[in-house]
Design a protein around this nucleic acid. Structure first.
Lengths: 127, 127
DNA sequence: GATCTATATTCCGATTAAGGAATGTAGTGG
DNA sequence: CCACTACATTCCTTAATCGGAATATAGATC
């Protein structure tokens, strides 16, 4: 994965927010919708952009698509470095902090770590 | 300086190379031209782009324009973090390494640290 | 003041990106 | 099979970006 491609993914605010949230763990599209408060098409297109460039992975689970960062071993040194950097920078930014707060307020049954299972249970997701 | 703007500056290869070289110290436009091997207009426009967004400073010295990264105190935390990150990533990339090698081969009288004086001497620069 | 050098700017065309409306699709449940 | 849900894709418009050719400008030199 080339460094430029990483930066191209990082140069849009929506994508930054998506990646930032994903650092907490896998999430489905409706999580992003409710946390970012952006329309579905916008979220979906940016996730697609990230996916084509290998910055996120996606797997279907029932009706839901679960997005995640690539497995640790699959992350290039450049990606690791930049994710860490983003993490640092986001820690002091109002928008990112608000996103994180909203994420934590989501249905507890849907906590990021267990998203795949919960979303796959067919019991309804978060939105 | 907003994080997004930093990433927008970093998402072009030419600009990455410019910034990477500037981490060695101030440089004039003709240095960039000879190191990158790109046409003047391209270099100049990307430097302009970086300047408008505050990622580089410029001062005239005789016929030459000396570009530099902002003084350390003037760098936001985000900028510092990202420059460090770029430094790391560039260390293992062929293009960046080649640029660095070329920079070091330039006229020794024009070593980065003293660029401002030399370029200002009117004795001719590097190209 | 004419000229030269280093650099910036303008004008252009081509490409890419971003967002929304509408529509398509895959899987689920009746 | 029908309807529903979650999501993706297409189509369209607008705006931003990139690169090059040509031209302009600022300062130095003669």
């Amino acid at each position: 994965m080339k460094l430029i491609q990483i930066y191209q993914c990082l140069c849009d605010e929506t994508r930054l927010r998506l990646l930032h949230l994903l650092m907490q763990g896998p999430l489905c599209v409706c999580h992003f919708q409710s946390v970012l408060g952006e329309p579905q098409v916008k979220i979906s297109k940016h996730l697609g952009y990230l996916k084509t460039r290998g910055l996120v992975t996606a797997k279907r689970s029932g009706n839901w698509m679960i997005y995640a960062l690539p497995a640790d071993k699959a992350r290039s040194a450049e990606l690791k470095a930049n994710l860490a950097c983003l993490q640092d920078c986001a820690a002091e930014d109002a928008v990112f902090k608000r996103d994180l707060a909203r994420l934590k307020k989501l249905d507890l049954a849907c906590a990021p770590a267990q998203v795949a299972e919960v979303c796959g249970s067919g019991k309804g997701c978060c939105c």
